[in-house]
């Protein structure tokens, strides 16, 4: 047991569970990769790479750039920017009109989403600015 742990670096149960998991992964993976294997692999592993090495560093850098904002106002910029960016990340095919079949399939106009997202963004930053003003006013009165 100790010899195993020294060689493997974890308990035998760790290896057993991982082996069972990899076997199921292989069973489903053979089916997932049955057609267009290369592209599917690019999507599967590329998703992890794109997130860990592009998206995350980008938003961390954007957040660091907020360091120039005075501390009192920082989260009043950070939170609406986060929510607005999140809405764009999830709904970008509609917001940026990337969904070609949308209009002909659903019979609905595809041209509303960009304006709606911009208005939601305006409302988020506007509400955050009002909150900041209120807080400044209250702390000014308290002082």
């Amino acid at each position: 047991m100790n010899r195993f742990r020294r060689l493997y670096g974890a308990s035998p149960l760790h290896l057993l569970l991982a082996s069972a998991s990899f076997a199921l992964t292989a069973y489903a993976g053979v089916r997932l990769f049955e057609s267009e294997a290369m592209e599917v692999a690019v999507w599967l592993f590329g998703a992890a790479v794109l997130h860990d090495l592009v998206l995350l560093p980008l938003y961390c850098a954007a957040d660091r750039a907020l360091g120039a904002v005075p501390p009192r106002a920082l989260n009043h910029v950070r939170v609406p920017a986060f929510i607005s960016g999140l809405l764009l990340l999830v709904w970008y095919p509609l917001i940026l009109s990337r969904s070609a079949p949308y209009a002909s399939s659903t019979g609905l106009s595809p041209n509303v989403f960009r304006e709606r997202w911009l208005l939601i963004t305006a409302a988020l930053f506007g509400a955050s600015a009002v909150l900041l003003l209120l807080r400044q006013w209250r702390s000014g009165r308290a002082a």
Partner: peptide, 9 residues
């Protein structure tokens, strides 16, 4: 769900 069929398959 946005009919943006860019995935491979």
């Amino acid at each position: 769900i946005q009919l943006h069929y860019v995935f491979p398959g």
